[in-house]
């Protein structure tokens, strides 16, 4: 089966600094793929290139190909709006809009003036149900999203991606500002979401990668050193660097 995201000979420069060096891999559909590695290894850069959020940074240059749905999204003519609709992103710090919960969820529909046969209320309900927030929030949809707990905010950030029907969800250390209990619950949510979405998660936390992901990639100094089934990476890695990292010898 064709991978959902195919990365071929990807290089990326910030000005003169090369942040990604010849990355090749394929990310499978409806699986959770985690990318691990020490700080500054390029894992967040790799994640952000998948929906071209890196474009916000000046002096960025790429070569190679990233194929999502038969299109090379690195081409200059790529429709970024369509791409980002298809490839949603959850950030390190929960960043709900300073609007009501309801408005946070309908934001995507509004900006894409998307039409749907479901009513707005149904969409809101379904989105919140998918992130298991509906029971908690159904009576206060009009209150500000900033009043929620961090964990609820992060769930809401996932929920607001869903109405525009993405296929891929990118998560950039989604639990780094949450406590262990909240982290566990977000991880459960990821298992739930895996049924319908392809998930790529960047994480500092190796145990998290081991717990949640099907595939894992280990990055070091801009290179994707090893990419394999999570089980294999954590029990019997092929490369010395991977072994050193997962056994805690550096990083």
């Amino acid at each position: 089966m064709m991978p959902k995201i195919q990365i071929k000979n990807l290089n990326l420069w910030y000005g003169k600094f090369q942040a990604l060096i010849d990355v090749n891999t394929g990310i499978e559909e409806k699986k959770i793929t985690s990318i691990i590695g020490p700080s500054g290894c390029g894992k967040s850069t790799l994640l952000r290139v998948l929906n071209r959020m890196n474009d916000l940074i000046e002096g960025i240059k790429t070569s190679g190909e990233i194929i999502i749905g038969k299109e090379n999204i690195l081409l200059p003519g790529t429709d970024l709006i369509k791409l980002r609709k298809n490839v949603g992103m959850v950030f390190q710090r929960p960043n709900p809009f300073p609007l009501s919960i309801r408005k946070n969820i309908t934001f995507g529909l509004e900006i894409h003036s998307a039409r749907s046969k479901d009513t707005l209320d149904e969409i809101i309900e379904n989105s919140l149900k998918s992130v298991l927030l509906w029971d908690d929030l159904k009576d206060k949809l009009n209150s500000s999203a900033l009043e929620l707990t961090l964990e609820q905010q992060q769930r809401l950030c996932v929920a607001r991606l869903l109405p525009v029907k993405p296929e891929i969800l990118l998560m950039d250390e989604p639990c780094s500002s949450l406590d262990p209990i909240a982290t566990g619950r977000i991880e459960e949510l990821m298992f739930e979401l895996k049924k319908n979405y392809t998930i790529v998660i960047v994480t500092h936390n190796m145990q998290q990668a081991a717990r949640v992901s099907d595939d894992t990639g280990f990055m070091l100094l801009g290179k994707l050193v090893e990419f394999n089934k999570t089980e294999k990476i954590f029990t019997n890695p092929e490369k010395k660097e991977t072994e050193d990292y997962i056994t805690g010898r550096f990083g």
């Binding site: 929906n51 959020m53 916000l56 970024l80 709006i81 369509k82 791409l83 980002r84 609709k85 949603g88 992103m89 950030f91 710090r93 960043n95 709900p96 809009f97 300073p98 934001f107 995507g108 900006i111 894409h112 950030c157 607001r160 991606l161 525009v164």
Partner: peptide
Amino acid sequence: PRRYKEAALALGATHWQ
């Protein structure tokens, strides 16, 4: 905060939106 703008852009909003 920059994260609001990032969130909007990541959802496919234009800069103007």
